[in-house]
Amino acid sequence: MNLKQLAGYIDHTLLDPRASKEDIIKLCNEAEQHGFASVCIHPYHVRTARMNIKGQDTKICAVIGYPLGANNTAIKVFEARNAMSSGADELEVVINIGALKDEEETTVKADMSAIVGAGRGKKIKVVLETGYFDDEDILLGCELAKYANVDFVSTSSGFGPTGASLADVRLLAKTAAGSFQVKAAGDIDDLSTTIQMLQAGATRIGTSSGIKILEELRIRATTLR
């Protein structure tokens, strides 16, 4: 795998609430320079990102209902539409965690389906926050995600009890069966972990350490020459 290929799997992420406009501009410049798949940011920063992403290859992903997923669906839909009107290309929404724990299938399906409908063809990623769930809950979440026709299911927001685990990524990939793609996110900050997540079935990596990971690959390639 070369640098360009690896960069294409990465969502260059900055969800720190202290992020400034200058930080977002820097993030966008880095994303375009290195060829990352997207910048993943809070909705407030989408307009700044739109003004600073010059090309078409790096997308803008706005997080919705972050980080708890407990907003009412109408609020998530408004947030999604607002983010798109500001220039978001992708939406990443946290599932209603409490409703999934209670096995309120109708509520969870309706929540995800409403975002997909509001997205009007935009790429929709749903965060399961797998650290809160056992395998049975994760399987239920995946089945509901299939019903809602989401594009990706992500392991975590980065704010939950755990980040991505190889076991969870494998379970998501196996359950997806081509219905959705898998994003591994949370506690991925080195090349070895990134490669393991991709081998386990992830097709997108959420990390704030993308540049560091690419540098590790560059050094490895140089050493092997």
Rank of each mutant, 00 (worst) to 15 (best):
K26D: 14
A37F: 11
V46K: 01
G163D: 03
I10N: 13
A70G: 01
L224A: 11
G121L: 00
F180L: 09
L15K: 06
D57K: 10
L217C: 03
I75H: 12
G117A: 08
S209P: 05
L14Q: 12
G98S: 03
E129A: 06
G121I: 01
R218P: 12
K59R: 08
F133V: 13
I24L: 03
A83H: 11
Q56L: 05
K26S: 08
N71Y: 15
M84N: 04
G210T: 06
Y9K: 06
V153T: 09
E90H: 11
Q196H: 07
D151A: 07
V93P: 03
T13D: 01
L100D: 01
I219R: 07
G35V: 12
N149T: 15
P161W: 03
G65Y: 07
K212E: 10
Y44V: 03
V39E: 04
V153D: 12
K146I: 06
E105Q: 08
F36S: 11
G65F: 07
N52Y: 00
S113D: 01
K123D: 13
D16E: 13
E143Y: 05
G160L: 04
V126M: 03
N149H: 14
P17T: 09
F133N: 13
K174H: 13
A145V: 06
F152G: 12
F36M: 09
L139H: 05
N72M: 03
